[in-house]
């Protein structure tokens, strides 16, 4: 059987330790080892963004990060944004209020990409939002209601 190596990754605030094949991708680690199936696989090539998570607070596409590269670091997935239904992140609220999703497959990655935008730029213009999510593909919405969702979140965060 293939050689295994230990990894210790803090995921959504909890430290997890596993033995994995060195080639294990972070997205597979999250989905298969930790059952964090909100992280989706859309292209295996960094081009669609469905697998976007935060690594030490920065959005990365977890289909082209090895689990061993995340060793000793912090990962946040969509499941880490809200502990329960009554405490949604403003972006989750925005996507819900503005119909920023249809089939929902791109949504976790889209929200995590948008989160980095709002972390960096709490009051983005429409053009800045479109630029920030340009690496995330949505095949259902045509993006306009996603833009509305991110604006809604920015306004809510600004009002808070």
């Amino acid at each position: 059987m293939p050689r295994s190596v230990p990894v210790a990754i803090t995921v959504n605030g909890s430290k997890t330790e596993r033995e994995v094949e060195p080639r294990t991708l972070l997205v597979h680690f999250l989905r298969e080892e930790l059952d964090l199936t909100g992280v989706h696989i859309g292209c295996e090539s960094t081009l669609c963004g469905a697998c976007t998570v935060h690594l030490n607070g920065r959005a990365v596409k977890s289909c082209t990060v090895l689990a061993v590269q995340a060793d000793g670091q912090d990962v946040t997935t969509i499941e880490g944004l809200a502990q329960d239904a009554d405490a949604l992140h403003p972006l989750q609220v925005g996507f819900w209020e503005k119909h920023g999703l249809q089939c929902g497959y791109c949504t976790p990655g889209m929200i995590m990409a948008a989160k980095q935008l709002l972390d960096d730029n709490p009051n983005p213009s429409e053009a800045e939002i479109r630029e920030a999510i340009d690496g995330n593909i949505c095949r259902c919405t045509g993006y306009q209601q996603i833009v509305d969702a991110v604006q809604h979140a920015a306004e809510a965060a600004g009002a808070a």
Binding site: R31, L88, H99, L101, Y105
Partner: peptide, 19 residues
């Protein structure tokens, strides 16, 4: 009306086939 489907989808708690 906003969607009844969305709470599971925006939290990453939906079950697609690969899940």
């Amino acid at each position: 009306i906003k969607r009844r489907e969305d709470p599971r989808l925006i939290r990453g708690l939906a079950t697609y086939t690969d899940d």
